[in-house]
């Protein structure tokens, strides 16, 4: 049996619709993740991604079903589950240090001021904001604000970090740098992370498992894509990996066409046993058979000019 650190069990979310009926965003939704895994949910707007995350965070309640984290059913919000909000949600009247310290002092209420400050400072340093502790959020760029959001979430050493499209409001360069930071931090700390994104490349770079959701209403988790790329991947060389395009095309194909037609095409979909796919592997084995064994290291790691 696999380690189910997070287990979402048969949750549904319904809203009262117009004319007395109900709108079902999703139902019978099952998802599980192991400790230390990085999971990404991809799907179009309106499929209920954010609702799943909010339920996991305890900010929203499912109409049916339960969520179990670390062997316990969740009830409301918890300091074990930190949320990084899309809009960073910093308190504008507090400084960077004040925002992080607020989280720290919420978790450890008996700590004295100096201890809270020292702990908060450690996480501000971790996200590379040393020197900006006493600035207010209005004096920071979008990327720096989101760094504070990450520091705040990490400072309470949560069991799970939940991220709701954390980088979608940032420019491409800043987004890239922050993705690097998040990946570094998650690998270093073994943080279990659940993230929602629109960005296929972001998911490929960051996630161990990518959860594909069909279009709502009545959205389902269609399949789980296991990331075949090696753990120590770099953002710059990512696209040179032989599995990269197979993986990327698989996800893009899903988003472009299969997310719409899935319900009509797959009639025997069992939401409790969602198929797991590992794009890249079978194709490559067929195409280049034995060559696979030679690729113990990944060609992208070396510069193109020196690869021969």
């Amino acid at each position: 049996m696999t380690d189910k650190f997070i287990s979402i069990e048969g949750i549904a979310r319904r809203y009262p619709g117009a004319g007395g009926g109900t709108t079902t965003v999703f139902e019978d939704f099952w998802l599980s993740m192991a400790r230390g895994e990085f999971g990404c949910v991809i799907g179009h707007s309106g499929c209920g991604k954010t609702t799943v995350l909010n339920i996991l965070a305890g900010l929203d309640e499912p109409s049916e079903g339960t969520v179990i984290v670390d062997g316990q059913g969740i009830e409301g919000t918890s300091l074990d589950r930190a949320v990084i909000f899309q809009s960073h949600a910093l308190l504008p009247w507090r400084t960077v240090l004040g925002n992080v310290a607020y989280a720290v002092s919420s978790k450890w209420r008996k700590w004295d001021r100096a201890r809270v400050k020292a702990h908060a400072q450690r996480f501000i340093d971790l996200v590379g904001l040393t020197g900006s502790e006493h600035k207010h959020p209005s004096e920071l760029s979008g990327g720096m604000k989101q760094r504070v959001g990450i520091a705040r979430a990490l400072s309470i050493t949560p069991k799970i970090m939940l991220m709701d499209e954390p980088f979608s409001a940032l420019d491409a360069l800043t987004r890239g740098t922050l993705q690097d930071e998040v990946r570094r931090i998650c690998l270093e700390t073994g943080q279990t992370t659940f993230m929602i994104t629109h960005d296929v490349d972001e998911a490929i770079f960051l996630a161990d498992k990518i959860f594909l959701m069909t279009n709502g209403p009545g959205a389902v988790l269609a399949e789980i894509v296991e990331n075949p790329l090696p753990k120590e991947r770099g953002r710059i060389d990512l696209h040179r990996h032989p599995y990269y395009y197979a993986l990327r095309n698989h996800i893009v194909d899903f988003l472009v066409s299969r997310s719409k037609s899935f319900a009509a095409e797959v009639t025997d979909h069992d939401p409790r046993h969602v198929p797991t796919v590992r794009p890249g592997l079978p194709d490559l084995m067929i195409a280049s058979g034995t060559e696979l064994h030679h690729q113990t290291s990944w060609p992208g790691l070396s510069r193109p000019s020196t690869s021969h």
């Binding site: 305890g58 900010l59 919000t77 918890s78 300091l79 949320v83 909000f85 949600a89 919420s106």
Partner: peptide, 13 residues
């Protein structure tokens, strides 16, 4: 703002 309230909620304030 709802998000500020949510920050407080997730921090169990």
């Amino acid at each position: 703002r709802k998000e500020w309230i949510n920050v407080a909620r997730t921090l169990e304030v």
